[in-house]
Nucleic acid binder design. Structure first.
Lengths: 147, 147
DNA sequence: CCAAACTTGTTTCATTTGTAACCATTGAAA
DNA sequence: TTTCAATGGTTACAAATGAAACAAGTTTGG
């Protein structure tokens, strides 16, 4: 009997991973070249810039990072004096993180670059494709939920 | 002036990466639990199963892996006696890789599991969404090309 | 023919990552 | 209360990764 074949190039998990990896790699050049940030550091900066003040746990949830990544990213941004920690008054295990002026400046510099990157990508697609990518990513996320 | 905000949760590179990571992680359980394979090893097995015989360079191109990943994955599969190397007759730098009986058996066991995984995901989406995900991933890949 | 440039594939080293153990603190139960 | 499980966060260790140097072989241009 013929062995059943899997075509890797069109296998969804592979396809998706390769695309995301390529996009992420391309985008990472921006924050790497600009500020020497790693992806966890960029996400941390981004999360705090967006929300203002967050705990490490909240950061991990928002940006889908393991707590060790968060811990290390926060440590590095603190070393740069891009963020400060404020102990919670009621629960002494918790720290509230917030960007300093320098951190906020870096964030404000990055935001337009990030939007421009995303814009350039979307610009090269038709309007229908733009809708399709957003909605089908959501659909697939939903499909994965139940597994 | 208000600082411009980036909403990470809907930022395409993040969105895409998170989805691909989740899908890949879920799928990786299958080859990890079953055979203790890493992702590069799985891709190598998959490439050779699909194509029969390939060089390391070809494997890297097909499955978007850095040559060091290929090198290490091949070494591990060889250690397991899942593949053999045959020196090229004309160019002694090149080795042709092929699965052994044991390697092929593992591949044949994995293929239906992989297809079932993909099928279960797609099954949870509407027909329109299935079309949309495939075509919009292709469109985005195309858009990234030109960058 | 021969040196320089290039290709294939491996190895080395530094960095990044994930797992698990860990510390400190809190909340809940006995 | 006192103990025990759960939580927030860090650290230690092992594995995975990427960049760059490398060895071996091949091609090309003078």
């Amino acid at each position: 009997m013929e062995p059943e074949i899997l075509e890797l190039e069109s296998f969804l998990p592979y396809r998706l991973y390769r695309l995301a990896d390529a996009v992420s790699r391309e985008f990472s050049k921006i924050y790497r070249d600009r500020h020497g940030l790693t992806r966890p550091e960029w996400r941390t900066l981004s999360g705090l810039g967006q929300r203002g003040t967050m705990t490490a746990t909240a950061l991990g949830e928002q940006s889908a990072m393991h707590k060790t990544k968060v811990s290390r990213a926060v440590a590095e941004l603190e070393r740069r004096r891009w963020l400060t920690r404020t102990p919670d008054e009621n629960d002494r295990r918790v720290e509230h993180l917030a960007l300093t002026k320098a951190g906020l400046a870096a964030y404000c510099e990055m935001v337009p670059l990030a939007k421009a990157f995303e814009g350039e990508l979307l610009e090269r697609m038709s309007a229908a494709e733009r809708v399709a990518i957003v909605s089908s990513v959501a659909a697939l996320e939903g499909a994965l939920e139940g597994k």
